[in-house]
Design a protein around this nucleic acid. Structure first.
Lengths: 229, 229
DNA sequence: CTTGTCTGATTGTCCGACAATCTGCGGCGG
DNA sequence: CCGCCGCAGATTGTCGGACAATCAGACAAG
């Protein structure tokens, strides 16, 4: 598509046509990983993927590079790319890093842009609504992590938000492996409401401590669910 | 290793044993950017670089992808990759993000691994020594930023350190453009010594405030030197 | 059971090709 | 004279094939 020479009218296709073949391939690979279609540690063969996705090996290779950069896969020289396998240490590190980033957001609650504060409330609402509506674990995780990212956004720093999103991506990889095992996302929803209530009461200190416990707990839960003691 | 056909390279090729051609190409591009051989905004043409580096276009393309991922360059669809141009807003954001990361390290001074504390002292020593020895700007910047990264390492989180290094890379890009203009790196060295002394005295609060001022000042100075008001 | 070698599979890199797209220039009409 | 149109060159995005280097497993030898 994309011809029609005589047309000079600007079409709406400009917005989503922004997708290149590499982007689509990378997105498909991400989906396959999060959907659990490929297990952790599975090697991603270039030729096989090229055939399966109907694109050239060069394109697959570039898409794999994106996955590796996102931390969803690892590349070993001359041994190719395989789906990253979450280690207990990396889960702990992700949560420690999250504590720093989200803690910074929480501490900045008072001075934060009102718009960002509103976004936190909205993210919480979407999360609790999704829980009440009994959405899929995938959707719940998505809303849950989006809420935590919205906390980082309180800092007003795009780069910290980007860093937080990278951490969440890594976490989603880990969660993709234990999705069906755990369902206590419910309690977490209430826990998050409590966190925001502390913030609304300007109890930044308390909210910080709450967050610290919450993340500590999250790390333990995930590691336990992964069976990595 | 792979073959390297006749090349028009203007400089000696670096052989690091277990490094791929892509890595070497990316490293060469980084060097060219930091060395100021290419100005900000300069388009990086794939065929020209392939010829200049003596590698294939595929390899150049992959190396450019690395540069883009590092934030040293930007890619616009169908318009290619060009050296990123630092904006005032991005410099401010980098410094705000640094404050969060380095602040977390400073606050964790007491609980930090003694090895990491020692590394901070060593990084400071290397920096001040380099200043005393009258090293080049490039070397001073390198030591200076390494010191700040060592503060982040106090958190013990590899991911936060990686994030900090990414921020420093972006900052180096900005500094590469105003290198010769600034000379007050000296005062900064003393300032850093004072910071560590506060830490040694367990005055974490004071050190944090000190760091906050330091980073605020750094942002202003860099933006001013860039002439971006 | 250990060790060395062979063979097939896979990656890293190169080359050439082509359509789609961008950019700058010159012509045409107003 | 100015602005719009389209053309030609340059550049990217993607493809397909090729080959050496390297890795993994089987297999034979000690």
């Amino acid at each position: 598509m994309g011809r029609m020479p005589g047309q000079t009218t600007a079409f709406a296709t400009l917005h989503l046509d922004h997708s290149s073949t590499v982007d689509r391939a990378a997105e498909e690979l991400r989906r396959a990983v999060f959907e659990g279609e490929v297990e952790s540690g599975t090697p991603l063969r270039e030729v096989a993927l090229a055939a399966s996705l109907g694109v050239s090996r060069s394109t697959v290779r570039e898409a794999l590079g994106v996955l590796v950069a996102e931390g969803l896969a690892t590349r070993e020289p001359h041994r190719g790319v395989s789906v990253a396998r979450p280690a207990a240490s990396s889960v702990r590190d992700v949560c420690r890093a999250r504590l720093v980033l989200e803690g910074a957001g929480v501490r900045g609650w008072r001075d934060a842009d009102p718009v960002d504060r509103r976004r936190v409330r909205e993210a919480l609402a979407r999360y609790t609504d999704a829980v009440a509506a009994g959405d899929s674990f995938r959707a719940l995780n998505e809303h849950h992590l989006a809420f935590h990212v919205s906390l980082v956004a309180l800092t007003g720093s795009p780069r910290l938000v980007a860093a937080a999103e990278a951490l969440m991506t890594e976490l989603k990889l880990a969660l993709a492996q234990v999705d069906r095992i755990r369902r206590n996302t419910h309690d977490q929803a209430e826990s998050h409401t409590a966190l925001v209530e502390l913030l609304e009461a300007d109890d930044v200190e308390g909210a910080g401590a709450f967050l610290c416990d919450h993340l500590e707990d999250a790390a333990v839960q995930v590691i336990g669910a992964l069976g990595l003691g």
